[in-house]
């Protein structure tokens, strides 16, 4: 199986330009088309170990980032396309890479209902997977990146996809999105973090993505059982602590963090009940990343790797 990194520069750019670049991301195949250098640079850096798929195969999500016309080109704007439609307003070219990543998330958030999807980062060790739901700014991505850099396998930064009626999470490993100060925090945390292009002044501030497939099994698509649910909250002014969370509260909070809990109706309820009954739920308040990683390791009995 050939990976993106095996392509010659010339072939890579040609495939990306013509829309014949197709990647396997967890259970889905994306085809990506773009004529923007910043998009090419980002994919080359962050997706180099992703497996290429023959573009003649079944493509789940066909996306494209390109100029919508002359006027957009003059305004230095670009446009995200999905199924040939433009679901979002035009964006400044400098934000194109961040938008590609959001767009790829959006495809799954909006369309895939074969799983109960939580807006959560997921990491795993041989002891089981941890689901970390969180609103933007909760520090879930930063913690996810840090755990990934200390030997945990990153299953997803954005979607915990649970097979209904089980506690098994389907991996959907893609770059981790870091915002504002988190970018420097992660760079200082580990010299091994590989970051893609930085998008300035997006609606979420400054955004850069970190290569997430750092583990030998990163591209293994087999589902893994979740054993813990941790609700992280980054807070510089509070005492760092980890506390047990009641199951009924966890149920409501996890449902709130779900993209499709209510869409799945009764099967959503059953799946959530199964999940909450099977995992231990914790709140984690932190501001020091080393402390947070150590605490998570201790909580699940995983050794601290440096």
């Amino acid at each position: 199986m050939q990976a993106v990194g095996n392509l010659t520069n010339k072939l890579f750019h040609k495939q990306l330009r013509t829309g014949s670049l197709a990647l396997q991301v967890g259970p889905y195949t994306y085809s990506i088309q773009s004529d923007l250098p910043i998009v090419a640079e980002g994919i080359r850096a962050l997706y180099r170990d992703f497996v290429l798929v023959d573009p003649q195969n079944f493509i789940d999500y066909k996306i494209s980032i390109r100029h919508g016309g002359l006027l957009q080109r003059l305004r230095r704007q670009t446009q995200f396309y999905f199924d040939g439609t433009r679901p979002f307003a035009p964006i400044p070219i400098g934000q194109a890479y961040a938008f590609l990543e959001w767009g790829m998330n959006w495809c799954v958030s909006l369309h895939a209902n074969e799983y109960l999807k939580l807006h959560a980062a997921v990491v795993s060790s041989e002891r089981g997977a941890i689901i970390m739901p969180g609103v933007p700014g909760s520090g879930k991505s930063t913690l996810c990146a840090a755990l990934g850099l200390r030997g945990w396998r990153i299953l997803s930064d954005e979607h915990a996809m649970l097979i209904p009626g089980t506690v098994n999470v389907v991996p959907l490993c893609r770059p981790v999105s870091l915002k504002n100060e988190s970018i420097e925090v992660i760079q200082q945390f580990s010299a091994e973090a590989i970051l893609g292009p930085t998008s300035q002044k997006t609606h979420k501030g400054r955004v850069a993505h970190m290569k997430a497939d750092l583990h030998a099994d990163s591209h293994n698509a087999s589902p893994l059982p979740a054993a813990w649910m941790i609700f992280p909250r980054f807070c510089p002014n509070e005492r760092q602590q980890v506390t047990l969370r009641r199951r009924s509260d966890s149920f409501i909070l996890a449902a709130y963090h779900s993209f499709n809990y209510s869409l799945l109706c009764e099967s959503g309820f059953e799946s959530m009940e199964k999940l909450i009954n099977s995992v231990a739920c914790f709140d984690l308040v932190y501001h020091d990343l080393n402390w947070a990683v150590h605490t998570v390791n201790q909580l699940v009995g995983h050794p601290d790797n440096e």
């Binding site: 009641r246 199951r247 009924s248 959530m272 009940e273 909450i276 009954n277």
Partner: peptide
Amino acid sequence: YDPNEDTV
């Protein structure tokens, strides 16, 4: 779903 807490 009653996890034996005071809420259901």
